[in-house]
Amino acid sequence: MIKINEKLCKGCSICVYFCPVGVLKTSEKLNRKGYFLPTPVREDKCTKCRFCEQICPEFAIHITDE
């Protein structure tokens, strides 16, 4: 499962743009600090390559084994 930490995310969208299979999309919802968070839209396509997890500058996204 793709999990996003709303408290830490700064909405840079790097995970959205560089996901090799386009799992994520920038949502229209703002977090408490006013950032647009990423949201998984095609989670079934996720290969668990963890690129998003590794490139995220804020430790705000990770993949669980569920």
Binding site: M1, K3, I4, S27, K29, E53, H62
Partner: peptide, 8 residues
Amino acid sequence: MVIDKQEQ
């Protein structure tokens, strides 16, 4: 939206 309670 999936809000994470666990951490990275």
